[in-house]
Structure formats: structure tokens, C-alpha cells
Design a protein around this nucleic acid. Structure first.
Lengths: 258, 258
DNA sequence: TTAATATGTGACGATTCGTCACTGACGAAA
DNA sequence: TTTCGTCAGTGACGAATCGTCACATATTAA
């Protein structure tokens, strides 16, 4: 039996993270649908009661993993925000960083999808729900930064009756909707649809941004080529990892319909 | 003990529907997070073994309920498709019928969100997965019809490198993303965000359709007023039910940012 | 009439969950 | 130094949930 000792916040957080990491590995091994607390407990050097001190149940653990994943994604978003290039290209790059993350960390991506489900929220602790809300704001920060840059340089003018937050939300919900509905196509083509997630994401981004009047418009620019170059510059290691998993972004599909 | 008897497809389907209806009522009573098979069995005049003949588990039941909900939604979509009006207005109307359905049947709406989650799909029968795929196609049928009408009357020209299916998917994923991410605002304002689901849905529809060049453009039309009138004409009873639940579509918010 | 088939049942064992009495380390008080 | 109180870790245990299938019954076929 591990001797009890006084714990500070950092030690608690480190232990929580250790449990989360073990759970993620387990999800990769057995699939998210077979995850149970007993199985997680078997993977960590802590007792069941200790694990329940961190998470009130499986759904709370899933939410905590989701929060961790959103934190990772926010880092990718930040890198896209910082990239040198016109604002609209950076937003497109940011949208693709979401797809990169989903391809790179399918277990984390799936956990976020699960965590957005009503039955997970209904069985999670206030602590992790609040943390999730803060992370959602963090996720919006880079989107917000790009929109502000675009407003400042004049490439974007706020559409009538819309403010910055709404613009940011429209971009996020567009990417979220497309990638969620095509989640079965993220790791590989399922053969069940002719829709291609990277192509649809590209097209939806362009339609939405054109609808906003965000310069340069699609007809005036080679967004596809720029995106390719930018991705290679910003995420070379991530792209290499994805390639090593047998998946590549299918840029050729962008110029052909389904 | 109910005497065994030979069953035909219709009787099986009717029984399955009876179980589904009881489960929906139960979800309304106890919340989706507290649903268990034992509790469902307690609500229906069948044994546990009989219920398990229809659903291989709770997740399969959730998927079956979700399929039922999608069927309902497809009917609303069809009504929007049949409405008299310009194609773009009918598409906006169709998007709003999705919100109407979510407000009207929150338990069904939540079940669809749950059913799209990876852990539900991973624990469902091929039968209900396949049925879900067919219903997804059914859902797209009305969207498809409106797009075809728009192409035929010239109000929409296919954007470069996109086909009809992709246009349909972009509309659906846009609405799905917005309403899913704002699912906590569907029944009532949560106070946690200044985003308003009906306003964001309206704005995203307009941005996306403008991006497609779908006539009439937002700047040339009073989409808001038309929508209001169309909703009153097409869904008077549904709107009355929603109002009786203490919720109304906040059209006034459309002309003011967050 | 007997045997085979189809269907409904709920007792039962397996699994998962969440709790808490017990244990032990440590610091404070006597 | 000894005793007491507090804090943290533990896993046995009872409750809840799950999924199965031996048994019972009605109907059909031989």
C-alpha cells in the first residue's frame, strides 16, 4: 500500500495526467467503447479509490481526456495563428490543423466527440465541466486573433449584424460540423461515401470565407497551393507521422468533384 | 408469461417501436445519462430477453431512437422542400426546421447527438447502423431536391470543383455543427454564452449561401422577414407547441450582434 | 399422437460501479 | 517520548447493470 502523504496541487495534477495518459493508451488498445474504470485502474499504480478522487466516473474521465485534447488542439491553433501569411490563409491553416490533430490522435479526437455528447456532460464533475469551458475559450483565442488581424488589415469587414465572436464561432462550428460528420473518414477512406474530409473542409472554409467577403476571395487566389506549402512549413513532423500511418492529405481531390 | 406466437415483420417492427417510444418517455423523465436497459424493461410489457432480441444493448437502443428521430426530421425537411418559395428561402427554412425539431423534441435531439458518438457506433448492431445510413440518405433527399431546384432555376450555379452532393453536405454540416455546439441553448438561454442558436444558424446559412453565390444574396433580400412568415405558414402547430413550452425564436436578435 | 420449431421469460452468473472501514504516515499536543 | 488527530491510499464488498439461456408454452409438421 502506497503511504499517504500531503499532496499539493501540482502533485494532484501530475497524477491526474498520469491516469489520463494511461487511459488514452488503453483507448488506443481496446477502443473507446470498451473503456471501463476497472480497466483503467488496472493500468495505473493507484487504487480504485484514488482514481475516483480524480474522476467521479467514466464519463468524467472522458471529459478530462477531452479537455486535455482541446488543450493540445489549442496549441496547434496557436501555431497556425502565429504563422506568417495573410489572415485568411492562416484561418484555413488553422482549420486544417484541426484535421491534422484528428488524424494524428484519433483516440483523443474520438474522446472529444464523446465528451460533447449529452450523456457525458450529464455525468461529469463541475470541475471538469468548468475546465472544459475555459479551454473552449482558449481554443477561440487563436481564431479570435486571426479575425482581429484580418479586421485590422482590412481584408475582412464584419458582416452586417455580426460581431467578432460570431465570426469566430461560425468558423469553428463549420470545421467541427464537417469533421464530426465525416469522422469515419479521418483515418482512412471508408468506402461508404464519396465525400473526402480534407476536400470538404477546404470547400466549406472557402464558401464561408467568401460569404464573409474575406479577401482574397477564392476566385482570386490559389488557396490550395498556399495551404499545401503552409502545412509543409508549419507541421512537417506531424505530416510525416501521419504519412507513416499510411494517410496523406489528398490535395489532388480538391480540383475534382465527388 | 405471454404465449409465444409466430411473428411477421410488421409485428416485430411495431414492438420495436413500442419499446423505442417507452424509452423516449423514460429519457424525458430521468435524463439520457440515467438510461439503462433494466429501466426500459420495467416500462414495457415484454421480458428482458425480448427487448434484447431487438437491441443488442443500450447503445444500440440509442441508435435506434436516433434513427427514429432522423426519420421525423426528414419529414420536416420534406415539408420545407415542398414549401412554395424561392429555393434559397426553402433551404433556410429547412435549416430552421432542424432547430424546430430540436426545440420540440429535446430528448430525440439529444439521442441523435449521443448516437453520433464513437462509443455508440462501436456497440451497435449492423442492422441499426445500416438503417441509420439509409436514413442519412433520406435526410439528404430534401436538401438535394432544393439544390436541384436552385440549379434548374439558375439561382445557384455549382461552385468550381463542387458537385450537388458536396453542396448538400455543406449545408447539413453547417447546421449540424452550429446546433450541436450550441445544443445547450436550444431549450433556453443558458447564460453561459452570448451566442443565440437561432441567430447563429441564420447567419451561418446566409454566409454559406452567399459564398456559393446563391441568389438572392443577403444584401438583396429580407431573409429574416421571409423566414418568419414561412415558419408561421409551414409550422404553426409546432411553433405553438414550442411557445407553450416557454420558448420562442428570437428574431429580434438577428439584427443585433452579441 | 409425437416431434420439431418458434417464441417469451426471468433467474442467474458475470461484469462494472462506487463506497467506505481500515490502515499507515505524519505532525501537533501533552 | 508517547498519544492523538488528521490526511491520504486502499481494495473488499454490496449494489447496480448487463447479457445469456434453460425452461416453458404454443403452433406446426411429420
Amino acid at each position: 500500500m502506497t503511504p499517504p502523504k500531503l499532496l499539493d496541487e501540482a502533485a494532484l495534477k501530475a497524477r491526474e495526467l498520469q491516469i489520463i495518459n494511461s487511459a488514452v493508451l488503453l483507448i488506443q488498445k481496446i477502443g473507446i467503447e470498451n473503456l471501463t474504470m476497472d480497466k483503467v485502474v488496472a493500468e495505473v499504480p493507484f487504487s480504485k479509490g484514488t482514481v475516483y478522487k480524480h474522476f467521479i466516473g467514466k464519463e468524467d474521465l472522458l471529459l478530462a481526456i477531452s479537455n486535455y485534447a482541446i488543450g493540445l488542439l489549442a496549441d496547434l491553433f496557436y501555431r497556425a495563428y502565429q504563422f506568417k501569411g495573410c489572415a485568411r490563409s492562416r484561418m484555413l491553416l488553422l482549420n486544417f490543423s484541426y484535421l491534422i490533430y484528428a488524424m494524428l490522435y484519433p483516440a483523443l479526437f474520438q474522446t472529444v466527440l464523446c465528451a460533447k455528447s449529452p450523456n457525458v456532460v450529464g455525468k461529469s464533475s463541475e470541475k471538469h465541466i468548468k475546465e472544459g469551458e475555459r479551454l473552449d475559450v482558449k481554443l477561440m483565442t487563436s481564431i479570435n486573433g486571426i479575425v482581429e488581424d484580418a479586421l485590422n488589415d482590412g481584408s475582412l469587414v464584419l458582416p452586417l449584424n455580426m460581431d467578432v465572436q460570431q465570426i469566430c464561432f461560425s468558423n469553428w462550428s463549420m470545421a467541427y460540423g464537417a469533421i464530426s460528420l465525416l469522422s469515419g473518414e479521418v483515418e482512412q477512406c471508408s468506402g461508404r461515401t464519396s465525400l473526402i474530409v480534407e476536400r470538404e473542409l477546404f470547400n466549406h472554409s472557402n464558401l464561408l470565407h467568401d460569404g464573409m467577403g474575406w479577401q482574397p476571395l477564392t476566385k482570386d487566389s490559389s488557396h490550395c497551393n498556399e495551404l499545401k506549402i503552409a502545412l509543409d512549413k508549419l507541421f512537417p513532423q506531424e505530416l510525416a507521422k501521419i504519412k507513416a500511418k499510411g494517410r496523406e492529405l489528398n490535395f489532388d481531390s480538391f480540383s475534382s468533384p465527388a
